[in-house]
Design a protein around this nucleic acid. Structure first.
Lengths: 217, 217
DNA sequence: CGCAACTTTGAGAAGAGTCAAGACTGGTGG
DNA sequence: CCACCAGTCTTGACTCTTCTCAAAGTTGCG
């Protein structure tokens, strides 16, 4: 669990421009923290490029990653005053920051943003429901298979070959497993011919989609 | 997994009145299904009295309950055309049904409902994040302790004594455990003096809140 | 009162976790 | 260009929590 000293702070000039133009651009380096659990939730965000992970920690360090957010997704909007989870960049990423007040009915854009935020919240809730089913009721094999199929769907690369943007530890904390179990399961899948791990251990080729889908109950 | 033949269908007259007055009242008997995974999502709902459980099934019958919705909560709004989970009444319950089109910007109430729905969606997302942490990273003891504290908070009854509105099987499917593990954990808590189970096995008294909170990491 | 649904308890099995060691990768600097 | 090093990943042996299967005990409704 790495915590970088400070995220890039928002220059005031930018904030002003952003409020008018639809979001303040912000660039994040690999691993950089956008906000932490407990921070004031004055802004929420939309991913432009790269990927963001949102996570929660228990006091003894156990971590659960709630979602990996890719381009176009909105996250970080809260019911209360503070963020309820941490958001960090997986690799380099760019986001647009929106001030919370932009959502108020009086906002200049006539509520178009609010529309988009509601749609996004509902989609996130969908995903969360699906993920709770995975966390609560699926076996390690089913979890990993579901993860691979989901990533293959969402990553632009074609033909079942793609590069995972996160280390095993993130996959484990996303799936509610240990890194050893993730690793062993991937090895098993390789032995069974379901996938191939060509040298660089972050790249994955899905060889037997049918078998993987069968595991994805 | 019980599936009742049919939910009460909405009379047309009611639908008309509801669209104007802010929701069509609907009464559910114990165990009755409000909608099932895959049903057309033309309506969404707000709980008035009682409690609703929302759940998803795997093809082999494994079930995950995503949430128990109590009075005031909104649920059942979808991104797509169909419901992505099933909603059933725990005991008797009454809800208000809202047609999805009531959310459109042109709606008569000027968007007040949309406001409420967005706030509710964000709260649900909060809860879902918290529940993913529980499902993915907590032990059986921690899960049950968290559940008891949450229910004690949300049930109106005072002094740490209350009646659980659901059977053990629902608790298990909510916490990602088996009913045996839930039962054993409750027995252990009783032996350790954390709770008391006075005769009727649905009622619970929390005796040692401090110890329970300590388990709720 | 009787029965069905629910709950508890026990014994044994198994899936996933823990601890430990070794292999690989990719970047850095000599 | 190669050697080294930190971080990451894989593998093995063993443990343990939770699940499974089975049976008996309760509860509450009809």
């Amino acid at each position: 669990m790495q915590i970088l000293a400070s995220a890039i702070q928002m220059p005031a000039a930018f904030a002003l421009r952003g409020a008018m133009s639809g979001g303040v651009p912000q660039t994040l380096r690999k691993g950089e923290e956008l906000f932490a659990e407990g921070d004031a939730a004055d802004w929420f965000y939309k991913v432009v490029t790269g990927a963001i992970r949102t996570s929660k920690l228990l006091s003894d360090g156990r971590r659960q990653i709630g979602a990996f957010h890719l381009a176009g997704e909105i996250f970080g909007l809260e019911a209360g005053e503070n963020h309820r989870f941490t958001a960090e960049a997986l690799a380099g990423a760019t986001v647009l920051a929106y001030c919370r007040t932009c959502l108020e009915p009086s906002a200049r854009d006539g509520g178009a943003l609010r529309e988009e935020v509601l749609a996004s919240a509902i989609r996130s809730l969908d995903r969360a429901q699906e993920h709770m089913l995975l966390l609560g009721r699926k076996t390690a094999q089913e979890k990993v298979a579901a993860f691979l199929l989901d990533m293959a769907d969402r990553m632009p690369d074609g033909n079942g070959q793609f590069e995972l943007p996160m280390p095993r530890s993130d996959i484990a904390d996303y799936l509610g497993l240990t890194i050893e179990t993730v690793s062993r399961t991937l090895s098993q899948f390789t032995r069974d011919g379901l996938i191939r791990l060509p040298a660089a251990s972050r790249s994955i080729e899905l060889c037997n989609l049918q078998a993987l889908r069968q595991l994805n109950v």
